[in-house]
Design a protein around this nucleic acid. Sequence first.
RNA 1: GGAGCAGUGGCCGAGCGGCUUAAGGCGACGGUCUUGAAAACCGUUGUGCCGAAAGGCACCGGGGGUUCGAAUCCCUCCUGCUCCGCCA
Length: 437
Amino acid sequence: MIDIKQIREDPERFKDAGRAKGFDVDIDRLLEVDSTLMSARKQLQEISTSKNRIGKSIPKLSGDEKQAALTQLSELKQQEAKHDEQIKKLQPEFDELMLEVAQPADDDVPLGKDDTENVEIRKEGDIRQFRFEPKDHVQLGQALDIIDIERGVKLAGTRNYLLKGDGALLHWALLRFAMDCMVRKGYVPMSVPLLMKDEAMSGTGYYPGAEEQTYRMEKDQLNLAGTAEVPLTACRMGEILKAEELPLKYVALSSCFRREAGAAGKDTYGLYRIHQFDKVEQVVVCENDAEQSRKFHDEILGNAEAVMRALELPYRVVNVCTGDLGRGQAKKFDIEAWMPSRGNYCETHSASKFYEFQARRMNLRYRRQKTEETRQKEKSKINFCHTLNNTVIASPRILIPLLELYQNADGSVTVPQVLRPYMNGKEQITKSSSRST
RNA sequence: GGAGCAGUGGCCGAGCGGCUUAAGGCGACGGUCUUGAAAACCGUUGUGCCGAAAGGCACCGGGGGUUCGAAUCCCUCCUGCUCCGCCA
């Protein structure tokens, strides 16, 4: 959410920002509703002042004087009702519009329509040249009996799958390796609930907007989180944190559920776009300071890159353009891994910087320590936090480049060095060995 | 799922229709004293909105109601605790 004061001051900035991102909101209407509400509230306050004053004098009055006061009060109540009604009518419209105003993108975010206009920042790692006809991850998975898409679909419909034997172990090895990397860096590991209340969904910025992408338990008014970003970012919602607690650095492993509505017919092959997957996610909550946000944005990007380098997977980092940014994101780096079967770099990670957009929505604040500055300006003691998040690893999507790039001419797959300790020392996945380690 | 109890400021806790401008305590901060610290004493100390300021308004789990007036009474929902039942 954006500070209404900022919108009042510079409406054009938010109109432009919305247009660039493809989240157009009627800013003029918002300001109109805002000023009507403000004047109604102002008059309501004056009425309350009078009511309070008269109300207090009542016990001291008697006879005609008391009667006159009571009459005056009932007149005030009528006026009050009029303004109350106006507020009740307009407040919901105001709230709705406020939730829709987009966070302006940083100046160094490229202008663009969609993901085709994202700008590559750098490439890392060499793309492997095969001296044999390589298989894709589905062919490999079937031949090695570690991926079973057919039965996944039998159980749960399209975009579902099973991982089996060494496939399951490799999947968990990746997740556990990623988790350990983060814990070593001081991130606090968390196991979190995934059925989220609406407040957590709108607090993180998913609602309104992503309802169609979300599995919802209507009976219980709960939503299956599409990422652990939701519980991790929202877990301190409504609190005033102590400055000494910051930055909060959280990491969680969770299943992720996505309806993929509107993606019908897109990426239907293999494990790329699926309804349920597992992900290790990192979240940082820091002080309200653009420079700190920038620093932690680099840090969480670096954390993910370290995992990719350790896995020796070639990737590139792109600066996501305005049209491909979410409503709340000020800037986003995607990591795209090279996927031989797709002949392209494809998104495996997404590092987002929100400034106070999410914190404002969920009323997540912190109290600054008393310094010379705050002692003079008492008002600015409490501020909204800044929030950021990034994938550490998401599997099975990461299995696509991993299986495809680590395959051998004989159809086996070499286990990356760093994962072997998590696979009972196993060095290769072969057909005959895939069921046991 | 059934029964009972409870939700008040950073924390504990009083208040049960107008002496509340939310007592009192703890903690925190500032000051006096001290070589320094502790103790003691004095003072300050919730959030949001309007306002240049003075000040005003709202908020005692959420929502609604009764009343001239609600933390206090009524309805409703939510959350937590205890006991019982069921269960991985």
